[in-house]
Computed example of a mutant assay.
Amino acid sequence: MKTFDLQRMALDNVPMEFLAEVALRSLYTFVLVYLFLKLTGRRGVRQMSLFEVLIILTLGSAAGDVAFYDDVPMLPVLVVFITLALLYRLVMWLMAHSERLEDLLEGKPMVIVEDGELAWSKLQSANMTEFEFFMELRLSGVEQLGQIRLAILETSGQISVYFFADRDVRPGLSILPKHCTPRFKTAPESTDYACVRCSEVITMKAGEQQLCPRCANPEWSKASRAKRVT
């Protein structure tokens, strides 16, 4: 085989006329995927559960094959789409009648922040890093965890945030980027400090060193008292 053969790379052994057939096949699969998304009533991947993303990936595989390979007939792909659409409807009906099945396929919402404190062990079990989680909170206008009464990681991957009233905001861990929040192992002054790992807030005196009583982490940042800017 000749390397960097432009004819082979561009068309291989198919005739130029096959490009028009590829365009027709692509239009066909586009219409099928569009109809499926209309059927599910979803507007974006972030609104989809793991089960729904799995179905879309399966559809994408079938759509890609029929769009590009001349030896893949179009009618069986239509059967694939109809089968998956019926499967989706059946599973949605079963989940509506079985909470256990719904939890198995969709997962459960998970409380990640409660009363200004991070449930860092839950965050790890959700396969989400603190960096990702804090970025999502910043996009919701959060500066420090003490502003949050409750933050819930939904099954779609989105985060629902419920805030304290300004008068109830607590000292908490700043979630600004690392270069904006100096970290200390020795307290430079007497004030409240937040554990940079689990967000536990304690009062330390100047020159004091402590391990976090919650996670044994030795690193701290000054607890922020910032209120929400709305």
Rank of each mutant, 00 (worst) to 15 (best):
R89K: 15
R89E: 05
R89T: 02
L90R: 11
V91R: 05
L94T: 02
M95Y: 00
A96L: 10
H97S: 12
S98P: 08
E99T: 09
L101D: 09
L104Q: 08
E106K: 12
E106L: 03
G107S: 08
K108S: 07
K108L: 08
P109A: 00
M110V: 13
V111A: 05
I112N: 06
E114I: 01
E114S: 13
E114W: 08
E117I: 11
E117N: 11
A119V: 10
W120D: 11
W120V: 13
W120S: 11
W120M: 03
S121V: 11
K122S: 14
K122N: 13
L123V: 03
L123D: 10
A126E: 14
M128E: 05
M128H: 02
T129S: 15
T129R: 03
E130K: 12
E132L: 04
F134D: 08
F134R: 04
M135R: 06
M135L: 14
E136W: 07
R138H: 00
G141I: 04
E143Q: 12
E143N: 13
Q144S: 10
L145I: 07
L145N: 08
L145C: 04
Q147F: 03
R149W: 00
R149H: 07
L150M: 13
L150H: 09
I152W: 10
L153I: 06
S156G: 01
S156F: 05
I159T: 14
Y162E: 10
Y162D: 09
F164C: 08
A165S: 15
D166T: 11
R167N: 14
D168Q: 13
V169K: 06
V169A: 10
L173N: 10
I175N: 07
L176P: 00
P177G: 08
K178G: 02
K178D: 12
K178C: 00
C180T: 00
C180I: 03
P182R: 10
F184T: 03
K185C: 11
A187F: 01
P188E: 04
T191R: 11
T191P: 02
Y193D: 13
C195V: 02
C195M: 09
V196F: 07
V196W: 06
R197F: 05
